[in-house]
Design a protein around this nucleic acid. Structure first.
Length: 888
RNA sequence: GGGGGCAUAGCUCAGCUGGUUAGAGCGCCUGCCUUACAAGCAGGAUGUCCGCGGUUCGAAUCCGUGUGCCCCCACCA
């Protein structure tokens, strides 16, 4: 007898299991050419972030896949790491220093601020990976990597230098998305467009030579007029033909600016005349270039008005300036009106500030050339998306790709490896810091102040942790990786860029499959977010229900793609399931004598229930493996649930109680052996999803001769249906047996027979095979259905007096029920049953009567339809006969 | 404005390449403390598979269309 605790206490076992795994080094995956690698790159979370439900679900998927492949014998590597997250981290630290010391980063100075950043990273960094350990994530923790570690930093410089020398990185003065709060440029992909209600202001611009004549322009940002260098109309616009080429005297400023014609202008919008501010609007920027207009930057880095605007506005915040400009125009009687308008305004994803387009000198990556091959691999299927629909999103972005602004005016990140020469204006670069200008040899060189966009290091994730630019053994062995599991939001920011750089540097995709995980939402379908405060804290769930419960519920709820709506209560089902597994195991182990070796299973000696249970294990294994191969994790998990709860517990163990509590020692020995064998198979199947409870149970299981025994469940072999015992015919017999039991239970229960009442039942089968089967299992049926006696016969069904009847597939069963049955109720039940079957029969008859169906439907469909009709017709006849006898 | 997705039981959703008596979990109803588990067991009810049209011998499944939600992309000032 082996005894387990009466309740499974996650806290008691999780740490113990984890420590054993770590001690065993089972998750470490060094290069091993005797095995096939299976690799997943962990999307590196921000180094200072906290575990949230998004990690809880999508990282669990990764862990399940890795654990499953590991058990299948692959050299499974899940590579963990963290991202320095430039903007996010810098914002946090700046804020902390501001509140604690009342200082800005500028006041501290760059070297000191950088020191603080690293100190912060040391203090708060890595908390997330600690939390990942609590989730049981089987990463190769020895390989944990940070994007600002030496290796990845070197890779960043190497790729920069390569692309720069190849002409794919260039420096240019462009209009960029300027975040005035953070005072840095950001890329197009870090914008958030928000629909807002604003006003469209109509302003009159007087002609220079004829101030009485005005042209009205419409704008949502009046303050930018201070930087206007033209007014544009459509070349074909009748209303303005006579004005094209004339000059305007810009109000408030006094500058003379031309009226130009450009077909970008939509005559039907606003007044059909547009003010042109090339330094503060992307469209105007293009027009400015086309018409060679001056570019006047009228704002400072923090979006206050610059020194080159009239004194009245100087230093004002742009939104204050807006009001002030309107006021000034009103004073001049040049303000016409405003009308309300809905329009999209770009905001900074990070700081939430309204983006100000700003002319500045930045570094860019030319993307078109890199995008080509990345498009091709998706089209040819070398790169696959799950679900496939995301491929379109990916392709659409790549096909319309814009150059990528990679320089950031931040202090946290990889410094741009570019040095400017004071003597010759030459630019130097290199993997190592150059000491002199590569053009004139001058020592007066200075490194670029800016750092690189965080994603400029993230896109190297498939190669940098493996030692690129070295052609390392790791790289040769693990690249390309197998699957990337990530969120749809970063298909552009990250996925597409990894593909581009992977193809560029290695000539092959960085991963073959991209699995887009479901978004985690609350019950109202709103994304979990900090600001809404609608999230669920995984740590609280773990605290309450344990890690296996959160892992199970999270994946069971998560279909491929789409969204998961969850609430705290959902995790109870996981906890209940874990407890069920524990209790079932506890029950079985009570009957196990650890000193007595288990019996090898011999097919010819097995009983029907034993064969059936073994078949259940095998067919579930087949199904689960197939689902996992197709990333249908929730289906795999659902099958585990039904195997364990429905098959193993509700039937397997219930049936076995007969033998376990019986006197036949030999039968008992065999049943125990079968059950332990199946339980071990189940533990293996479920281990990737619920690693802790399965490991703990497994450690108590006696050694079965048909399972190899390793040091831990996590490195034991995963069940492979091809190698398991199969009994397909047992499954068919079993379903008759099962129908007999549930049929009897059902009529008893519906007739209100108390469970304790032991009744007699008479069953009549259509075939001797079935009758023999029922005879053989009589004892079981009696116990499971609460009978005193079961009389089995072939054919010749006869009701003797009032009886409850159940009509099943190939049999009918009677329970004489004189005195306890309500005849009227029974008639009602039987007739509604008869009506139901009648409909089915009619449907099948119509189908088979249809010449077209008979001639065109495939053989097997036709055959099964015929068999179905035969069976249903028999049932119907039986029902009608019984009805008649009841009524008559 | 462009693109994508979704609509199946009271709720959350499965249902893969068209052929099932349309399923699961939770919830609900009835009866059971049956010596693993009341976090349990047994039984039960519930669906114009969003509307309309089409393809087909056959449609929840494919096509079109309407409606209602959701997401992503986008420079109409």
């Amino acid at each position: 007898m082996i005894e387990l605790d009466p309740v499974y206490d996650p806290k008691k076992y999780e740490t113990k299991c984890w420590n054993a795994w770590m001690k065993g080094g089972y998750f470490h995956a060094p290069v091993d050419k005797s095995k096939k690698p299976f690799t997943i790159l962990m999307p590196p979370p921000n180094v200072t972030s906290q575990l949230h439900m998004g990690h809880g679900t999508s990282y669990t998927v990764q862990d399940i896949l890795v654990r499953w492949r590991r058990m299948q014998g692959f050299n499974a590597l899940w590579l963990p790491g963290t991202d320095h997250a430039g903007i996010a981290t810098q914002m946090m630290v700046e804020k902390a220093i501001q509140t604690e010391e009342g200082k800005t980063r500028q006041e501290l100075g760059r070297p000191e601020f950088e020191k603080r950043l690293w100190a912060w990273k040391e203090k708060y960094g890595g908390m997330i990976t600690e939390q990942f350990r609590r989730m049981g994530f089987s990463c190769d923790w020895e390989r944990e990597c940070f994007t600002m570690d030496q290796g990845p930093s070197k890779a960043v410089r190497a790729i920069f230098v390569d692309l720069y020398r190849a002409g794919l990185i260039y420096r240019g003065e462009r209009l960029v998305n300027w975040d005035p709060a953070l005072k840095t440029a950001i890329s197009d992909d870090e914008l958030e467009m928000k629909e807002v209600t604003g006003a469209l202001y109509h302003i009159k611009y007087p002609l220079a030579d004829d101030p009485a004549t005005t042209i009205t322009v419409a704008t949502t940002r009046p303050e930018t007029m201070l930087g206007d260098t033209a007014v544009a109309v459509h070349p074909d616009d009748e209303r303005y033909q006579h004005l094209i080429g004339k000059k305007i005297k810009l109000p408030l400023v006094g500058r003379e600016i031309p009226i130009i014609a450009d077909d970008y202008v939509k005559s039907e919008f606003g007044t059909g005349a547009v003010k042109i501010t090339p330094a503060h609007d992307p469209n105007d920027f293009e027009i400015g270039k086309r018409h060679k207009l001056p570019f006047i930057n009228i704002m400072n880095a923090d979006a206050t008005m610059a020194a080159n605007v009239p004194e009245r506005f100087r230093g004002l915040d742009r939104f204050v300036a807006r009001k002030e400009v309107i006021k000034a125009l009103k004073e001049l009687d040049l303000y016409e009106k405003d009308e309300s308008t809905r329009h999209a305004v770009p905001h900074s994803e990070r700081s939430k500030a309204v983006i100000e387009p700003r002319l500045s000198l930045q570094w860019f990556v030319r993307m078109k050339e890199l995008a080509g091959p990345a498009i091709e691999v998706a089209q040819t299927g070398k790169l696959k998306f799950y679900p496939d629909a995301w491929k379109k999103t990916y392709l659409h972005w790549l096909e319309n790709i814009q150059d990528w602004c990679i320089s950031r005016q931040l202090w946290w990140g990889h410094r741009i490896p570019i040095w400017y020469c004071a003597d010759c204006e030459g630019i130097s670069t290199g993997l190592e810091d150059p000491t002199k200008c590569e053009h004139c040899g001058s020592a007066k060189i200075k490194q670029d102040e800016d750092v690189l966009d965080t994603w400029f290091s993230s896109w190297l994730w498939p190669i940098s942790p493996f030692g690129w630019p070295e052609n390392s053994e790791d790289l040769k062995y693990f690249y390309p990786t197998d699957v990337l599991v990530t969120a749809s939001e970063i298909i552009f920011l990250w996925v597409a860029r990894m593909v581009m750089v992977g193809l560029k540097t290695r000539g092959d995709v960085p991963f073959k499959d991209v699995y887009i995980a479901a978004t985690v939402c609350d019950k109202q379908g709103r994304k979990f977010s900090k600001t809404l405060g609608n999230g669920i804290d995984p740590l609280e769930v773990i605290e309450k229900h344990g890690t296996d419960a959160i892992r199970w519920t999270g994946t069971a709820l998560a279909p491929l793609g789409g969204r998961i709506r969850m609430e705290v209560g959902d995790f109870e089902s996981g906890a209940r399931f874990v407890n069920k597994i524990w209790n079932a195991s506890r029950f079985l182990l009570k009957y196990v004598d650890p000193k007595k070796p288990l019996k090898k299973l011999v097919a010819s000696e097995l009983t029907l229930p034993e064969k059936w249970l073994l078949e259940e294990l095998a067919s579930a294994s087949e199904h689960i493996n197939k689902c996992l191969e197709q990333y249908r994790i929730n289906e795999a998990v659902e099958r585990m649930y039904h195997l364990i709860w429905g098959s193993f517990c509700d039937w397997g163990l219930e049936v076995a109680k007969e033998t376990l509590n019986g006197a036949d020692e030999k039968a008992k020995e065999q049943t125990i052996s079968v059950l332990v064998y199946v339980l071990e198979g189940i533990m293996r199947l479920a281990s990737p999803v619920m690693p802790f409870v399965t490991e703990e149970i497994w450690s108590h299981l006696p050694v079965h001769p048909q399972w190899e025994r390793g040091p831990s469940l996590v490195v034991s072999s995963y069940p492979d249906a091809a190698k398991l015992m199969r009994f397909p015919e047992a499954a068919a017999d079993w379903s008759s047996f099962q129908e007999l039991v549930t049929g009897i239970r059902s009529i008893r229960s519906q007739a209100g027979v108390p469970p304790k009442d032991q009744l007699d039942a008479f069953s009549y089968s259509a075939t001797t095979r079935q009758a023999d089967l029922f005879k053989k299992e009589t004892a079981l049926v009696k116990r499971l259905a609460g009978l005193r006696e079961l009389h089995v016969a072939v054919q010749g069904a006869q009701r003797k007096g009032p009886a409850l009847v159940y009509v099943g597939k190939g049999f009918e069963v009677y329970i004489p029920a004189e005195g306890i049955m309500d005849v009227a109720k029974e008639v009602k039940r039987l007739s509604s049953e008869a009506t139901r079957v009648e409909k089915i029969v009619a449907g099948l008859q119509a189908k088979l009567g249809n010449e077209n169906f008979v001639s065109r439907a495939p053989e097997d469909v036709l055959a099964s339809t015929k068999a179905q009709l035969e069976n249903m017709a028999a049932q119907l006849a039986s029902l009608q006969k019984n009805l008649a006898s009841l009524q008559g």
